[in-house]
Amino acid sequence: MKTLRYMGRAMGLLLRSAMQYRASFLMQTLSQAVMTGGELLAVEVLLGRFTRLGQWSGPEVLFFFGVMQCVFALVEFVGRGVSTFATYVGSGEFDTLLVRPRNLLVQVFCTRLDPRRLGGILVGLSALALAAAGQPLAWCWGKALLLVASCLGTTLLLVGLFLIEATVSFFSVKSIEMVNVLTYGGRTACQYPVDIYPTPLRLLFTFVAPFALCMHLPVSWVLDKPLWGASYWAALMAPLAGAVFFGIMVRVWYWGVRHYRSTGS
């Protein structure tokens, strides 16, 4: 409760800071819209030309895309502090967080808690609406629960993946671009269902960065085409993989804090 109030306050302060630069505020909001809109355009172009992707119809592909957009908007909203953490360590500002009596990771979230990022959810939801309109889907509470679990699990997975780079930044001043392979690369690759990919990529996205478990399995169940013929319970439990991944990365990150060297001597 106290944590939520703190996050609310931090968000308000960030918005007020952003409002100081009107033009910038507008441009940033606009660029968000361009980004998500551009991706939707790309998917539409591909679906216009090819109509099918493996066993999936156009609306089904759009459905996966919509879920990924919503998830990434959530990640950008809550996890910017983590994904930009390397610059925070580089400038020595992390010291400031260490001398405050609050949970460290919550404080890191609070450094960049930008509600405007949630705008991407609108694009995601409209993609979902388009997708749902394009196919006969029977809805029930069970499916809604699956979607929520899937979004939460995938969000935790992505924040966990961003924590890898954050942890590396304790040890090396150079930010490791390669981690983008799993975060931004994972986003791009896994907005399409995992079964279209060749085996190495499928293994990568099932066992290393388990997007398949967090997202594709439950969402495929919602579309009545469960991957690997999974049962409802299996589909509901699979997103826990994201929570487990996040939990492990939080431990690793705290281990990194112990080895933090600060700047200067």
């Binding site: 033009a23 505020f25 441009m27 660029s31 355009l41």
Partner: peptide, 17 residues
């Protein structure tokens, strides 16, 4: 505009697409 993040991000995206 004294702003790099917004403008850069947008031109970047337009360019990539």
């Amino acid at each position: 505009t004294l702003d790099a993040r917004g403008v850069s991000a947008m031109i970047q995206l337009l360019m990539m697409i």
